[in-house]
Design a binder for these strands. Structure first.
Length: 937
RNA sequence: GCCCCGGUGGUGGAACUGGUAGACACGCAGGACUUAAAAUCCUGUGACCAUUGCGGUUGUGCGGGUUCAAGUCCCGCCCGGGGUACCA
């Protein structure tokens, strides 16, 4: 029987589907294991060779865990909302749901061909109303919760209202937007100017419904607010910070503008500290954890008030270096700072306004482009250093950002490089207060040294001085210790059609959420997928987009990360119509044990998910604080482009080795026309009409191409599609080759040529079970020691390799095993049946087929992983490498049990030693048992 | 600039806790089988020197160091990839 992979693979894929071989149910007595892939956005292009890498790895791991007796949950679904389908809808009028459905079908077909062990009964699609019902439900819950800093968790808003009613808000420690009361009192004069946001129970009773709701909005975990956002006119939507790179949209590369808009936000900042602390217990890569830590950006410091000279006002600054306060020689406000107009005297108002005008007109992109350009203006006002009473000038400059801290700093040029550059540029004084640097050269930023020129701080070390200053400002009421985070609240609105509608309506301009019983609020049909003439989002086009009572519904939709933030929980109980997921399901499946996916989600999905999960944990839904215990980022598979060299101004091409003798232009050529870097010149001429008469300058009668490793992309003609390879070699070969390429986490170039080696191996493997006539044949003879040694060596290594996700070395191990068994012409059932189970996670179709031929009536997925037995590996001698001065010279076989003294003796007596000793007496002999012997001469 | 990851033959990579560098595979060269091809199998393959034989020298980005012993640890650089961008 020939190895007919096409037939075999189809047969077993059908079998697994029909028998629901990978369907998981709660089995209380059995240990669970949850293996998850980051679900894909189904794009129109289908999967290329890079996509399945992580899926293959997770599939091998899942199958392995099943063999090890675990109840494995291994689901797959689709992150179905996304811009490409919507852009296509705008261009063609095709409803994005139709495009998405088509792409999903194509993805499914491609994944099925790879033989994955997904439980397809648990499939979810984020655009399915049965799914997004729970996305909307979570939004309502977020809206109806606030974050209690004292309790360190989210609590229901009704409890907060109750508290306001009985005791006001003076003693409530909540996560709220900074200075929220300023915004409110600005819009509603009845709160009174200078209102600090504190109210009593009777104040609360006196507030109107609108006032009460406006106050509550500042406490909710999902809230509506005005903010400067990244507006992308091309896409007609707002983008989150992580959807923007260098002033352009990550998707589509369109320019971004800053714009003030009303948006929904999620108060993720309330969870900043917990998001940071939670990282410590996670089995994630250091680089990923580092990225998240940096993104969260916790810094400890102090907030200090500087009174403005000849004014009632005080300016609040944030600093991480309160110790350097005596070295502060000026103060800088961000151009957006609201006090600028109030403090600037008439003498300076024109120059200040001119500067603000200039800065604000510079687009975000320009500002980023010339970071190094120093600009600023003196306001003419002075503030008083609260510690020494000295006045310092107040400047405005765009190197201070409105969005961080208080939007104002005390500049300490001697100990901050940015302040130093600014001071040098404008000729401002520089006062050294920490010894250790040379301020004529540059600022000394290290938190290390002795305080000088600093009054009562003199002689202290930096760390002591920081504490002393905080203590001092605390006592005088001019400041306090403060922790600041870089993390911003997540903008949750998009002005798009293809997303989850908000379960929100407006009554007299006040937003209210729908009741949970009204969910899902389904996405309505629209006549076009564009904004309206008045600039409203596409949902404003929907007919009757209002509640039963006639109140208008929200026209924004949710962003991409809404649906992906909690999908791993829904997989636990995907068909539940009453709940997001049952208590029973979550108690059993808990959280994800192994999560595999791309590292581009480091500061997006992976932070939002953790936040989402922590919130669900707080409200008693999730049972674990962290969603993903272990996380692995698979590397990208890069394209390996083929290059040809066209002579300048002609249609002749010169082979790689000769190219430097000619003036040439490098050109990409489709990789399908190239085999082992040799160009198929005939096919090349037929590739494009303009190449029909191409001429070639050959080397040894052949045209050799150059190559380059770059991203896999259509425009570089280096895209390799898995379908063709599976057609050619089968899924089992494809799976093993992807793993064989290199370590999972590493990025590496795709090179189709190597797949032949794995294909050879697979056929060799098949032949172990067949005789010369291709007839299935196993012998029932008892295995000999050498055969058992090979098997158990392999069991040990395969198990170790899978456990540490080292799939490439596992494939090598199988190759070695098959080479060795082949040499022994081993065809013994006792060896080869165990070998089938070992390889079944990697080459599942092949393993099933041979397992059946062995006479088994049940799928190999139900088998048990072979148990490693150390006894078979016991050797009674060891071939010691013998080194002289660390250089390996020869090998010497000695009994394993020999004592170190005897080994030394034996080595010196060995014939070959004489040559290296040259008659000298060795200084020292090191014997490492079963490792090495080193003789120092 | 800062943070993280990496640099090993012609190529992908192996060497897990310091202990025989280059496993396994691709490619290449030579050979067997065959009328021929495919398939399969065997041999060789880091570089340099020697090749009549044993062999020798050198070698993991560069320069130092620790150690009986360094691809692996330490210090200083160079290069590549990713993240971040005036975060006080």
């Amino acid at each position: 029987m020939e190895y007919n992979f096409l037939k075999i693979e189809k047969k077993w894929q059908k079998y697994w589907l029909e028998n629901k071989s990978f369907h998981a149910e709660i089995e209380p007595g059995k240990p669970k294991f949850y293996v998850l892939d980051m679900f894909p956005y189904p794009s129109g292009a289908g999967l290329h060779v890079g996509h399945p890498l992580g899926y293959i790895a997770s599939d091998i791991y899942s199958r392995y865990k099943r063999l090890k007796g675990f109840n494995v949950l291994h689901p797959m679904g689709y992150d179905a909302y996304g811009l490409p389908a919507e852009q296509y809808a705008i261009q063609t009028g095709t409803h994005p749901a139709i495009t998405t459905e088509k792409n999903v079908a194509r993805y499914r077909e491609q994944m099925d061909k790879l033989g994955f062990s997904y439980d397809w009964d648990r499939e979810v699609k984020t655009c399915d109303p049965r799914y997004y019902k729970w996305t909307q439900w979570t939004f309502i819950r977020l809206y109806n919760h606030w974050y209690d800093q004292a309790a360190g968790k989210a609590r229901p808003v009704p409890e907060l209202i109750e508290h306001f009613r009985s005791s006001g808000n003076a003693d409530v420690r909540a996560a709220v937007s900074p200075n929220w009361f300023d915004e409110l009192s600005k819009k509603d004069a009845t709160f009174g100017t200078g209102w600090k946001g504190i109210f009593t129970s009777s104040d609360w009773a006196g507030f109107s419904e609108k006032q009460q709701q406006s106050i509550l909005m500042n406490y909710r975990l999902a809230y509506l607010s005005e903010a400067i956002v990244n507006w992308c006119p091309e896409l007609g939507t707002v983008l989150a910070n992580d959807e923007v790179a260098n002033g352009y949209s990550v998707r589509g590369n369109h320019p971004i503008e800053r714009k003030m808009m009303r948006q929904w936000f999620l108060r993720i900042t309330a969870y900043a500290q917990r998001l940071l602390e939670g990282l410590d217990g996670l089995d994630w890569s250091d680089s990923l954890k580092e990225q998240q830590r940096y993104w969260i950006g916790r810094s400890e410091g102090a907030e200090i008030l500087f009174p403005v000279k000849d004014s009632e006002l005080s300016l609040s600054i944030f600093t991480t270096r309160p110790d350097t306060i005596f070295g502060s020689t000026f103060m800088v406000l961000s151009p957006e700072h609201e006090y600028i107009e109030k403090i600037t005297p008439a003498s300076h108002i024109d120059s200040v306004r001119a500067y603000l005008h200039e800065v604000i007109n510079r687009s975000e992109r320009e500002r980023m482009a010339d970071v190094k350009k120093i600009s600023g203006v003196f306001t003419g006002a002075y503030s008083i250093n609260p510690l020494n009473g000295k006045p310092i000038p107040i400047w405005v400059a765009d190197y201070v950002l409105a969005g961080y801290g208080t939007g104002a700093i005390m500049a300490v040029p001697a100990h901050d490089s940015r302040d130093y550059d600014f001071a040098k540029h404008f000729g401002l004084p520089i006062t050294e207060v920490v010894s250790g640097g040379d301020i004529s050269e540059g600022s000394y930023d290290a938190k290390d040294g002795t305080m000088i020129n600093s009054g009562f701080l003199d002689g202290m070390q930096v760390r002591e001085a920081i504490k002393a200053v905080i203590k001092s400002v605390n006592e005088t009421g001019t400041g306090r210790g403060m922790i600041n985070f870089r993390l911003r609240d997540a903008i949750f609105s998009r002005q798009r059609y293809w997303g989850e509608p908000f379960p929100v309506y407006f009554r007299e301009g006040i937003p209210y959420v729908l009741s949970e019983s009204e969910l899902p609020l389904e996405l309505p049909p629209v006549d076009a997928y564009l904004p309206t003439e008045t600039g409203e989002p596409p949902l404003a086009r929907a007919k009757n987009w209002k509640t039963k009572e006639g109140y208008p519904l929200e026209t924004n939709t949710m962003p991409g990360f809404a649906g992906s933030s909690g999908y791993y929980l829904r997989y636990m109980d995907p068909k539940n119509e009453k709940e997001y997921f049952s208590k029973e399901a979550v108690s059993y499946w808990q959280n994800v044990d192994l999560y595999i996916g791309g590292d581009e989600h480091a500061t997006g999905h992976l932070i939002y998910s953790r936040f989402w999960n922590k919130f669900l944990f707080d409200i008693g839904m999730a049972v674990r604080e962290e969603p993903f215990k272990k996380l692995v980022n698979q590397g990208k598979i890069q394209g390996r482009s083929s290059l040809v060299y066209r002579l300048k101004g002609s249609n002749n091409f010169v082979s790689q080795g000769l190219k430097d003798q000619y003036e040439h232009i490098v050109m990409h050529v489709d990789v399908s026309l190239v085999n082992n870097d040799i160009l198929d010149t005939q096919a090349f001429r037929q590739w494009r009409p303009d190449l029909a008469d191409a001429g070639f300058i050959l080397e040894d009668g052949q045209y050799f191409c150059g190559h380059a490793v770059e991203k896999m992309s259509k425009s570089l003609y280096n895209v390799v599609n898995p379908d063709e390879l599976i057609e050619h070699y089968g899924a089992d070969t494809f799976r093993m080759y992807e793993m064989f390429l290199g370590p999972l986490e590493q990025s590496k170039p795709w090179d189709t040529n190597g797949i032949e080696g794995v294909f050879r191996f697979i056929r060799k493997f098949w032949r172990l079970y067949h005789d010369e006539e291709n007839q299935f044949r196993l012998s029932d003879e008892a295995p000999v020691a050498s055969e058992l040694r090979i098997l158990h060596k392999t069991i040990k290594k395969i198990q170790e390799d899978i456990e540490r996700l080292s799939f490439n070395t596992a494939v090598s191990t199988f190759m070695i095993c098959v080479n060795e068994l082949g040499e022994l012409k081993c065809s013994k059932r006792a060896i080869l049946e165990d070998l089938l189970v070992l390889i079944s996670p990697y080459a599942p179709h092949l393993a099933e087929e041979l397992w059946q031929q062995c006479g088994h009536h049940e799928s190999i997925t139900k088998a048990a992983f072979p148990v490693f037995n150390q006894e078979y590996l016991v050797e009674n001698s060891f071939k010691y490498p013998v080194s002289f001065n660390g250089k390996m010279r020869f090998q010497l076989e000695l009994p394993v049990g020999m004592q170190a003294d005897d080994v030394q003796k034996a080595v010196l007596e060995a014939e070959e030693s004489a040559k290296w000793l040259e008659g000298k007496v060795p200084k020292k002999i090191i014997v490492v048992h079963k490792k090495i012997i080193n003789i120092v001469v």
